[in-house]
Each structure stands twice: as C-alpha cells, then as structure tokens.
Computed example of a mutant assay.
Amino acid sequence: MSYLNRITGLIMVCAAVGMVPVTLADNTSWPVPPLSKTPVPVIPAKSWLLMEHHNGWVLAQHQGTRSLPIASLTKVMTAYLVFDRLRAGEVMLGDKVMISKKAWGMPGARMFLPAHSSIRLESLLKGMIIESANDAAMALAEHVAGSEQAFVKRMNRVARELGLMHTFFDNSTGLPTGKNRSSAHDLGRLASILIREFPQFYTWFGEKEFAFRKIRFYNRNNLLWQTPGVDGMKTGQSRAAGYCLIATTQRQDMRLVAILLGAPSKKSRNESMKTLLGFGFKAYETRFLLDATTVVTRMKILKGSSYQVDLGLMQALHVTLPRGAFNMLSANVYTGAHPSAPIEAGRQLGHLTLNYEGQQLGEYPLMALYPVSRGKWYHGLLHQVQQWWE
C-alpha cells in the first residue's frame, strides 16, 4: 500500500493511535470548515463563538470579532504571561511574592491576602484562576513586571504578537475601573494557545476548589459540575460586560472552545453555553488522522549518504467535519525535484493537501524527519545498485 493510500485509509477509518493536541497559532484568518446542516441554536448574548481547538476552525459564531468589555476574562491573559515567565525561568512556582498595599486593597473577588505578607507564587496563580482573586492578580503582575503598569504594557504587546486584533488591556484584573476589551475570536485564540503551550498549568482552570489559609474557595465555573467533559476555563461578570464565559471541553479526539460575551444573567450564560457545546458535538466530529513524525512518503536524495529521506508532518493532524462527511475527504501528496544533500532535519520538501468535495480544505508542510549528509564517492554506486534491485 502506498503512503498516499495509507493516508486516505487513515482518513476513512481514523485509526486512533495517539494524539498530540496542536493549534495553528499563526492562523489569523480564522478558517471556516465545511458547515453542518444542523441548525445553529439561538444564543441570547451580545457575541459568541464556537471553535475547534486543534486547527482553530470556527464552527459557528455571532459577531465574533466585536470588541466588548470582558471583565475577569482578562485573567486568562494575566495567567498566560505568568506561565510564559515560568517557562523562561524568570520566576518560579516557589517564589515568595510580597503583597503590596495596592494588592491588599483590591475590591471584588479576593483571597484576603495580608498586606506586606509573602505568599507562594503557585498559591496566587491558583487563587486567581479558581477564585478569580483580584488581589492575587495584582500581586502577580507586580512580581513579574515590577508594577501593574509595566505588566499591562506586556499584556498589550503579547496580544499584538499573538494576533489578537480586537483586544486592549488597561489593567491586569478586569475590574471595571479599566477599559479592557476583546472579542470572542481573540479570546478563543488565546485560550487555545494557552492550552497548547501550557498543558501542565491548564488543568488548574478545571480544579473545582482551592484551600488557602483555612478558607476554601470554589471555582466560579458552574459547568465543571453540571456538564460532563467541561475541563475549564474562566468566568467574568460586570455591569458593562454582562455575564461572560470561556468554556473548554473534550470528548475523544474532539476539543471545543466556546466563548460567550454579554449574556443577560448567570443562568442564561450557563444554559446558553451548554446549548452551544451540545450543538458542536451533535453537528461535528473530529478525527485524528496522523501523528507527528509519521512517515507520509519517501523522497529520493541526490549525492547523499542515504538514497532517500522520510517525509512527515511535524505536528499531529486532526480534522473536524460535519458528522457523516468524512467519506468525502481525500488527500494528495506533492513533492518537488529530487534535492541534493546535505538535507537538514525539518527542511520542507513537499506538502500534503486535504480536499473536501473537490475543494482544498487544508495544506500541511512535509518535512525531512532526519538529516542526510553529503555522501562519499562510493554512495553513488551503492544507490545505482539499490535502484537496479528496485
């Protein structure tokens, strides 16, 4: 069986041999997959969006690029920046964070941090994520950047770097004293990037409770108790923003990210989110097609120490389509002229296209899975013998 036939077979039967979650973080156009004929539900909110996590495909939306107040959804970006500094080694989970008078005085949801005390950074992160604690968010911003003002500058810079075109931050907490705004598109993108880049920390968004100094705090995302499969992410509410929610859920290979902004009440927000997620699972399905580094095809190499090189994807490949539509999916592999050695690992030498009903659905680069050095004089002779036997 050829490798192309193997891919097509995988598309047809979707043999699940492992999964590596991948989001294409450089997708700024928000590609739309073939849409399901299942009616999209009516959602009473100013803006909402349902996306598939692996490729960032938008499955349904209403005013998804509208920039609106986001209240405590702000803290998703605050958490992302702290996670990024942890990754860089600039801060540690065990750091003792000094609680300033400004952090101590934060109104709204809080951990009741004593002024001038030293609190472990990990505890502050969990308090901000689970309890939505404003005092914890302020303390983290000051610890990471020296001041909230400097931290907010980082927030806006990173938002631009991530392609969040409808987002602006004025504070690190989401308190209504600021002018924080974003769109459902941008928040879905941010949520998906955070899940992909920081899976070790993302699980904290799904923790139902957190104890700190004999006080037990409960996650404000009621869907963690009410909806099987929901494993994060963040709530927000203010007079200007209304009731907001980012929710993430997974069933088998399918992970959905849903964003709802400006719902009229907490009950409406929760029920609408359940409806939206239910629609996603009813109307669409995601199938795992190829693992990262799986050999897709082989390519002949000129003047190399090896006669050929294996080509594959550097990221796992998932596809989401309307239910029952996978029999209309096909694949093609394209490679150029035979290259000459040396070949570096990761060099693109072709691409794989997926097609749906005759239209190209996606294009994925095929990379050399290992390096091939320049060959000696006798390699040419060996290659000729190998070709003769083939």
Rank of each mutant, 00 (worst) to 15 (best):
G188K: 04
G262H: 06
G229W: 09
V230S: 00
G278E: 04
T249S: 15
E197G: 01
F168M: 15
A241T: 06
K282F: 03
H185Q: 14
R213A: 04
L190G: 02
G206Y: 03
L276M: 14
Y284L: 02
L290I: 11
L194Y: 10
L194S: 00
A184C: 10
R157G: 02
A184S: 11
Q237V: 06
T167A: 11
N221D: 13
P264N: 12
H166S: 13
S182F: 01
W204D: 14
R255N: 03
F217A: 06
I259F: 09
T227E: 15
R160M: 15
V257A: 12
F212Y: 15
L224C: 06
Q226D: 08
N219E: 01
P228F: 06
I193K: 07
A184M: 09
S183I: 00
D231I: 04
S192F: 10
R255F: 10
Q237C: 08
C244V: 05
T167W: 07
D170K: 03
S238A: 09
N221K: 08
P264M: 13
I193Q: 08
G174W: 01
G178W: 04
V257L: 15
M273I: 01
R216K: 15
K274E: 11
L223V: 06
E207A: 07
L190Q: 04
R213I: 02
G278I: 01
G242W: 01
L162G: 04
L162N: 07
F212E: 13
I259Q: 08
K267P: 03
K267R: 11
P199H: 11
R160G: 12
S172C: 05
F281P: 02
M273V: 00
D253F: 04
V158N: 00
A184P: 04
D253E: 14
F281D: 07
S268Q: 14
A258P: 00
R251Y: 12
Y218I: 12
G236H: 02
G174R: 04
K267G: 06
A292F: 06
I246M: 09
T227G: 02
E207F: 05
A211P: 00
T227I: 04
Y218Q: 14
L261P: 01
